[in-house]
Design a protein around this nucleic acid. Structure first.
Lengths: 148, 148
DNA sequence: ATGATGTCGATGCAATTGCATTCACCTTGG
DNA sequence: CCAAGGTGAATGCAATTGCATCGACATCAT
């Protein structure tokens, strides 16, 4: 069992710090605009992409990296706000199909200008296109990493 | 404000995903070993570094990027476990000084082999030293970014 | 068919987090 | 000194998260 090198610690610390700081800025921008949290955006986007057929919660939870109960409750809240609807699944009696509603579409669209602008602000005033690609490539590798 | 370029979205997505996946692996390793969560390690490390004088919660919260109430409660829990002790601050009647206890030192030390090994595993089997440095440099810049 | 096993989703309960407020004390300007 | 305003820390209460479990249905092997 070896101990990490200093560069590893630096990369890990920078990763956690940057991720949290930027996330906070993005969430802050949404909240300041009176909009729902980021998780709602991600969920709405995936659900919207799934189209009229809807999507199953178990599929959604894998894309959004949420635990099963987390997904279940997130969908509860979004549905309670009228942004999605849950329907019984014909092919599998255990399951649901989740679809976006018109209000859900509007909500997602109203979030994007704020969200997107904040992303552009955080990344594009700081990095060149090459740097962005390099960053994305390295981070992707980190995620896929050992087990990938 | 404009909408972000595709590279920006890729970098942002990769950042959030990588950060969460790796964090989960590290927390998982600690939990699997029956050890306290990562936040305890970070806090214990800073408190231990502060030495016999102790450190003030308001200073700690800035290093660990926690909100004031989050820090207050984290310290409550760590103190309840006997790993730190809180003392009144002589120079400022409002404040505390937090010091590590022998048990706290032992706890931190017992976490490091697991934590460090997991870091080494996640980063050093995937990246070269140069990649690690590049990653750290870019991430640091991202954090400092717009406002820094 | 049927019983064993596996998967999907919900939920009770405990722990944690977020928000707003409070209390105590410090600092500063008269 | 005193009032006004600022800062350090705690906390009541609501919302969210984590954990374990459950109920319903599907699947698979016999």
């Amino acid at each position: 069992m070896t101990v990490p090198r200093p560069e590893t610690i630096a990369a890990w610390t920078a990763l956690q710090t940057a991720s949290r700081v930027l996330l906070e800025r993005v969430e802050g921008a949404l909240k300041a605009a009176g909009l729902p949290p980021l998780a709602w955006y991600d969920a709405l986007l995936e659900i919207e992409r799934a189209g009229a057929d809807g999507i199953r919660p178990f599929a959604l939870k894998e894309r959004l990296l949420l635990p099963q109960y987390g997904m279940s409750r997130l969908l509860d809240r979004i549905a309670a706000a009228g942004l999605i609807e849950k329907r019984n699944c014909a092919e599998d009696g255990r399951g649901l199909l989740v679809r976006i509603t018109p209000a859900g579409r509007r909500a997602r669209r109203s979030m994007w200008p704020i969200y997107g602008a904040e992303l552009a602000r955080q990344f594009e005033t700081v990095f060149s296109g090459e740097e962005l690609e390099c960053l994305a490539r390295l981070l992707w590798k980190a995620k896929s990493g050992v087990s990938g």
